[in-house]
């Protein structure tokens, strides 16, 4: 191959690419569904009777490598009962600007109270807004305005031989 034919070959390759369908996903219109084990925005779960699963043990905060969970526990009283255990999380905050979405909090929690959900649209105009409070995290929280609704099967990506990559 001479330099000339080499270059011509290169030109033909780029020219053929011109007529391919672009792979761009138009983000705000098309929200790419995520895999089931995707780690996104956290959720605090409830028992079926409505009580919070979290008992304020702070194990998640201890496990968090980014040190972004703040738990302040308080005693449940018969009049004000939030969780089945002795204590509940009076304050539960996650600083989303520091979270690295490692999922250690989920692993550490003895009650499966916290899990990482599928929402990934977490941009905010101010840092303060990124400190998520318990109210925001608790299910069924305020209608999650940013949860992308998967319009198609999450496995829309052509499956590879050895399972999803």
């Amino acid at each position: 191959m001479s330099p000339v034919t080499d270059n011509l070959k290169g030109f033909s390759v780029t020219f053929r690419h011109l007529f391919r369908k672009p792979v761009t996903q138009q983000f705000p219109e098309y929200k790419r569904p995520v895999y089931p084990r995707f780690r996104g925005r956290h959720r605090l779960h409830r028992h079926e009777n409505g009580l919070e699963k979290c008992v304020g043990c702070s194990l998640c905060a201890a496990a968090c490598p980014a040190d972004c969970i703040r738990v302040v526990a308080a005693e449940n009283t018969p009049e004000e009962r939030y969780s089945p255990g002795e204590r509940y999380a009076r304050i539960y905050e996650i600083n989303m600007s520091r979270c690295i979405f490692c999922g250690y909090c989920e692993l550490a929690c003895p009650f499966d109270a916290i899990t990482l959900g599928h929402d990934y649209e977490l941009a905010e105009m101010s840092r303060d807004a990124l400190v998520y409070t318990k109210q925001m995290l608790l299910e069924p929280g305020p209608e999650a305005r940013r949860t992308p609704v998967a319009p198609v099967d999450p496995y829309d990506i052509p499956a590879q031989e050895d399972g999803p990559a």
């Binding site: 780029t14 690419h17 011109l18 391919r20 369908k21 672009p22 792979v23 761009t24």
Partner: peptide
Amino acid sequence: RLIGRFQVRL
């Protein structure tokens, strides 16, 4: 636009 299409983007 054209470079985008050459690189299979929009």
